[in-house]
């Protein structure tokens, strides 16, 4: 039987040497993605979302080191394969939509060459078939006159168009897993809705797993099956989207949801909730809860020793806090 689990990550950590000491931007992160499932990773800027996905793709910056207990795509142990096999996986079975579109589009080649290169190189399709799919995908992401666009170079497109080309490119070979890092943040709400529909449609078509990284809690609530909330390099709460949005447990998750105005719920013009203070530096070791400095509930217990990701309110729910999820409910 083909396994339903497409990605399994356990004990993933990243370390980067910096002039002021060793930076630990990703610390012991673990989660999994099933076929057809959407897992969202949310959290404050700099909490390690992008580095987590780059670590999975084995595309970390040069000086960064990765360690993990398990990193398995379908049945392939990605900790035990060489760069050559990894590069095959990247073009073929696992693709990434990057936060910065320009970093992954090559300025020297036309959009058409770049879109069709993957499927042709991996022998999935011939030129005209690849071209047809490219045109179909470009039209799906809202690019008009798609056939003409294939002859254009990246610099001839606006930022929003480039982002959409990136999305089309990640979908060209029908991958098993897509990692989308802020795929729609730079776009309008109407085109965002279209692109989220497209991702869902392709997910159904190919039974693709999707890791969605975004700041936009509205997007997360609407499309994610499960949500991992990161804070300062660690997952602090993980659960079904329903659980996270209806009964958030971790004080950081609760704070985050209080910050956003919700039409129809937040009184117009009222003061929004806020999380005072700033994120801790991730240089060196930090003994206790990373959120302690900003947490209203912090006690001596929180900072004396590491706080584990413990059982939550249901089997698939986990919370990293010295208080139990029941104690944390208002």
């Amino acid at each position: 039987m083909a396994s339903e689990r497409i990605l399994e990550v356990e004990g993933l950590s990243v370390a980067i040497p910096t002039p002021s000491g060793m930076l630990h931007p990703v610390q012991n992160v673990g989660f999994h993605v099933d076929r057809g499932e959407t897992v969202a990773i949310v959290g404050e800027s700099g909490c390690g979302k992008s580095l987590t996905s780059l670590a999975i793709m084995d595309l970390l910056p040069l000086r960064a080191t990765r360690s993990a207990d398990r990193l398995v795509l379908d049945n392939t142990d990605m900790l035990r394969i060489g760069e050559r096999q990894m590069s095959d996986i990247r073009g073929n079975r696992m693709s990434m939509i990057f936060q910065e579109p320009m970093t992954s589009l090559n300025p020297a080649y036309t959009i058409g060459d770049q879109l069709t290169e993957g499927p042709r190189r991996h022998g999935q399709s011939g030129m005209s078939e690849a071209r047809d799919r490219a045109v179909w995908l470009l039209e799906k992401v809202g690019i008009t006159a798609a056939a003409n666009r294939l002859r254009q170079y990246p610099h001839q497109l606006s930022g929003g168009l480039r982002q959409r080309v990136m999305i089309a490119m990640a979908l060209m070979c029908g991958p098993d897993l897509i990692i989308a890092d802020e795929p729609t943040t730079a776009l309008d709400v109407t085109i965002q809705a279209q692109i989220l529909h497209l991702l869902a449609e392709l997910q159904r078509e190919f039974h693709t797993g999707l890791i969605l990284i975004t700041h936009d809690l509205g997007v997360v609530a609407r499309v994610a099956d499960r949500v991992a909330v990161m804070y300062a390099g660690q997952i602090v709460e993980e659960g079904s989207a329903h659980r996270i949005f209806t009964t958030p447990s971790h004080p950081y998750t609760r704070g985050l949801l209080d910050c956003i105005p919700i039409p129809g719920k937040t009184a117009r013009g009222s003061h929004l909730g806020s999380i005072p203070g700033i994120v801790p530096s991730l240089i060196g070791e930090m003994p206790g809860c990373h959120f302690a400095e900003r947490c209203r509930h912090a006690t001596g217990r929180c900072t004396s020793r590491p706080v584990d990701l413990g059982d939550g309110l249901e089997p698939d729910h986990r919370v990293r806090c010295v208080f139990s999820p029941e104690e944390l409910q208002p």
Partner: peptide, 10 residues
């Protein structure tokens, strides 16, 4: 506009 209501879809 996507309000943070899980289950409503896009």
């Amino acid at each position: 506009v996507l309000t943070p209501d899980p289950g409503l879809g896009v």
